[in-house]
Nucleic acid binder design. Structure first.
Lengths: 130, 130
DNA sequence: TTTATTGTATTATATATATAATACTACATA
DNA sequence: TATGTAGTATTATATATATAATACAATAAA
């Protein structure tokens, strides 16, 4: 997976968000093994403790689970609770829409202008395939 | 003006953003006097130093200017350079659109779905007046 | 059985952020 | 003229974040 860290927000929060996107976009599927904390940290070029904090957060949300019941050395996996993933996906999409429309409206744009600007921007940035 | 501070990003950056929105949305007009640092800080329930940092940043961007040429006790005003405000408004709107479409696409939505979801969300949250 | 790997924990350090308290200079105003 | 107000500066303190360097116990793998 690809990482994109900027520096005006806590890194561990950005890691949580980007891992969550990987889960709800289907880049990581229910039951899939998750790379080890060390590997993920190296991949994202981030300290192990920082990545550990992100994974612990996702585990507390139920999105990641320990792979075996007994102890740890088996690593983590994506939850098989698809309804939980769907629920989080819906919430996430709604929060993006909320944030976006709030910002556009605060600029003084009305609903028609917002829709047309979105359509215009999408067509400008459409990849050749679509 | 209304303030809305959350706690996962530096406060001074959020102050810069929200003051900037006030400028480019026309809530504060070119030439308008800006309240004193102390008053703004009290209004936003934020430390004076924090608000000062935000105002200094906006001044460095040319959006705010010292009210008189001589010294300070006259306070600040909004720049009368309307083209600068327009330019920043365009950049801001574009960055919002960029951020939004990037997030929606990363969820696996195609352009048609994005437009329809925007339209649907806008109609659901439309105020009575519109 | 030996070695490597897993998640986890601990300690220390550096940095950025936010606040509080205080003070100064120059100007505006009463 | 005397007082208040503007922006600004300084010092100190608390907190969150991020990193580094280790270490450990239990499991997996060679």
């Amino acid at each position: 997976m690809t990482w994109n860290i900027d520096y005006d927000r806590p890194i561990w929060i950005q890691l949580v968000e980007q891992l969550q996107v990987a889960l709800i976009s289907g880049e990581l599927n229910p039951g899939d093994a998750v790379p080890s904390v060390r590997d993920l940290a190296a991949d994202a070029q981030v300290n192990i403790n920082t990545m550990q904090r992100a994974l612990a957060e996702l585990e507390s949300r139920g999105l990641l689970v320990p792979k075996d019941n007994r102890w740890r050395a088996s690593g983590r996996a994506v939850t098989e609770d698809r309804s939980l993933i769907d629920e989080i996906k819906l919430n996430y999409a709604r929060s993006i829409l909320e944030d976006f429309t709030q910002k556009m409206r605060s600029l003084g744009l009305d609903d028609g202008e917002i829709v047309s600007k979105v359509a215009e921007y999408l067509s400008k940035t459409r990849s050749k395939g679509e």
